[in-house]
Design a protein around this nucleic acid. Structure first.
Lengths: 224, 224, 224, 224
DNA sequence: CATGAATGAGGTTTCATTCAT
DNA sequence: TATGAATGAAACCTCATTCAT
């Protein structure tokens, strides 16, 4: 009996956690669709098939949904790293970057709602969570930057500011989520991956743009 | 009396419109800072220095603030066109594109709050307004696209999909608003303009990326 | 089997009662600290180390805690009587009263939380319980009154209203609980016992206060 | 017009404050009857004849009712002082004390609900408010103490601890509120005033109680 | 006996909106 | 035009209580 009881208690505990995860995910879907502020606890409860009161058996406040969700989201990317690092010696830098982009875009495609959500609701996030999100983004930028820097050393790439270039490329990846209403109409994911790779190659190969004196002169009407 | 009354009514009407514009602008600032849903009519009234009740003399509902604001926003860009079109014959396409980017980024810098707002609150917009915003964005994309296409024809540029390239470049411009917490730390506007120009040049000059058979082969483990 | 079962059931019953008593005591501590209304069944369950649901195996409703606690409290004083009665013939009345006060204050010190509780939460008590509490208080007053009356007969005391005098003295004893934040700062229990004895002696020795005509005259401005 | 408008606005402001005061008083009555925690905002709103929402036009939270009420209460006693001080030279100390008690008890009678309330709900008060209440109580104690000390100097009184004596007398005054269910049955206010005066005179005239060795000796069974 | 999970009534609070003045 | 006051629906949240296991 003891033998049976113990695993059962463990299972119970797991059950509550499981349920919590499930509830947070359900809430997240509503957040995606309607936004955090516009989603009511009643809606969440209904979507979960439980009473409003029961919700508070799992969480302490509506904010918790947000925080727990961000936690889940960030922990998804936690320790995220590319397998490409290990392949670096064996392939060209261009190739590495392209693979990285393909990988990145597929991930972004998988979590596009989440990304849109982070752009939209970042204002509501606690400073701690915001920090974490930013750190993770910069970490991902770093992966690309490493590749670009390597390529610059061998002369394969010629960009002067690898970090910014990496960030710009990431921006083009996020575009898949931010402008999906447009991109989905014209491209499949695989098609966009190729387009993105092309753009990225262009960016990292960029050489210094020769300053033409004339066109900077009349630019006096600078706005604040 | 008639003579006096008429101008007076006109003046009144104008005055009301003036005041409305002013109120909407004040509301917009609060929307920028706190988000639409998180901004209360009380806050708006206080910021405007009038009573909550008086607010409803100018508008019919809180939603009106949003709509009026989007109207104002879009009308800002309404008829927006570049002086560069007229200069096209006289300068290189690269030069034209660079000027266009400089111009665009300066505008984006001026209305960065507005842009952030549109990204964040687009969900709340009515289909009509959303349409209008999208059309305007595509119009701006079109300006760039025209330049790129012209450059492609002369062989100065080599991109196969000018529309997407233009959109990607616009995305990098929007980045100035979307990632301002990062970019402002490292670059001034003028510096970022140059960086953006470089990236854009890279993007439009991009040639076809030769497909390497090897790297596409192992990519079987596609994620949903 | 019958022989065995019966004692066993009795034992069970006893166990349950024991546990109930324990639980009520634990609840009482929380009531003392936070007040009845501010104490939740969850807190009680946690403090008892059992589940909220299990609580309802022992009681029928939260009110039960209150009632059971008042029952326990009042039964504490049930049959309370002083050993002093038996000593009466052998000692002076003053001495008897002083002993009674010492005894009473030590008891009050021991149950000061309970007394505070009764003053604070009497509103919630059922009429029956309130009656019981009042009866017990009056019983205690009676103990003192008996002594005072005896002293009055011998001329040792000179108070005209022994019952009120007794009640006033009890009030000064309760003061040890009601004003503990003040008294504890300045006096130990034993010190306060002496102070209380002195005051009590003063009260019971009091003779008629000669009415001075002058001071009652200007007191016209009586408030409602 | 200006002349008329200004007073009107002042009146309006006053009106809101007036109404607030009125509402707080109404709430206080409910607090007296049912206790703070047991009184709902719905009850308050109904008692005030307004909607629940409107309540929050006047206050920020339910707690405010409590705090505002305590503020009003304490400000009632603020600067409270006896006219007896000025009469001190002309009357006997006994007379002064009696007058002080009469005055005090009439005041207590007028605010008996308030006093009961403070005893019951002090737990809920913020430290600041509690401090204020305590300070005011000690101030009142001080008034009596001054009289007692003066009487001690002339030998009219013989109590060794005037402050405690004063506090004990105040306690007997509070008794009019705390034990009203009993006292009201047997005494009118004026009757109780006399009883209280007698007791007070007894307390302050008290001489040292001669320690009888015998009765302290067996007191070994001290309870914690 | 005991638990974890669930419930639902009811509490406090917010806020867009209305209305008499 | 403008205001202060009022409204009521609906939001979030609490908690005593119940129930299947």
């Amino acid at each position: 009996m003891d033998i049976e009881k113990k695993p059962r208690r463990v299972k119970r505990r797991t059950y509550k956690d499981e349920r919590l995860k499930q509830i947070v995910k359900t809430a997240a879907k509503l957040f995606y669709k309607n936004g955090y502020a516009q989603t009511t606890t009643r809606q969440i409860a209904e979507a979960c098939g439980i009473s409003q009161g029961n919700l508070y058996y799992y969480i302490k406040s509506k904010e918790d949904f947000f925080n727990l969700f961000v936690d889940m989201t960030t922990s998804t990317f936690e320790g995220y790293d590319s397998e490409i690092r290990s392949q670096l010696p064996r392939i060209s830098h261009t190739e590495a970057m392209k693979r990285r982009i393909k990988e990145g875009l597929r991930l972004i495609n998988a979590v596009q709602d989440m990304i849109l959500f982070l752009y939209r609701e970042s204002r509501i996030m606690s400073p701690d969570h915001l920090d974490q999100v930013i750190r993770q983004e910069l970490h991902i930028v770093d992966l690309l930057k490493t590749i670009i820097e390597a390529g610059c050393k061998t002369g394969e790439f010629g960009v002067k500011d690898p970090q910014l270039a990496a960030y710009q490329i990431l921006m083009l990846e996020h575009m898949w989520s931010l402008k999906r209403w447009y991109l989905r109409k014209h491209y499949t994911l695989e098609e966009y991956i190729v387009k993105c790779q092309e753009a990225a190659v262009g960016i990292v190969r960029a050489r210094e743009v020769k300053k033409t004196v004339k066109n900077t002169a009349p630019a006096r009407k600078t706005r604040k």
